[in-house]
């Protein structure tokens, strides 16, 4: 199963390191990563493979969300199908 991690907020040191550390720890593989600035906000999108993850989705989600709180950012993880189904026919 693949998921999309989105990070939105103010740019600062350690965002990618912080998120990547959680993913590595959970054995989640990063497949693609892109970052840009949209409407003045730092935005990062990661496509990840969570099929070999050693923690369940809920725990991964809450760890990322807690990291977001720590860094002053909003971090979400969502099944990629929600984006595919909305934007692809």
């Amino acid at each position: 199963m693949r998921a999309v991690i989105t990070v939105i907020g103010t740019d600062r040191v350690g965002i990618i390191a912080g998120v990547s550390a959680i993913l590595a720890d959970a054995n989640v593989n990063i497949l693609d990563i892109t970052q840009t600035t949209m409407q003045g906000l730092f935005t990062m999108i990661m496509l990840v493979d969570i099929s070999k993850s050693n923690i369940d989705f809920e725990h991964l989600s809450s760890r990322l969300s807690a990291k977001g709180d720590e860094l002053g950012l909003k971090i979400r993880v969502q099944h990629e199908d929600i984006f595919k189904s909305m934007h692809e026919i």
């Binding site: 999309v4 989105t6 939105i8 693609d32 892109t34 840009t36 949209m38 935005t43 999108i45 496509l47 990629e80 929600i82 984006f83 595919k84 909305m86 934007h87």
Partner: peptide
């Protein structure tokens, strides 16, 4: 990869 604008639209 899915278009970032579409991701943020959702």
């Amino acid at each position: 990869m899915i278009n970032p604008y579409e991701i943020f639209e959702t």
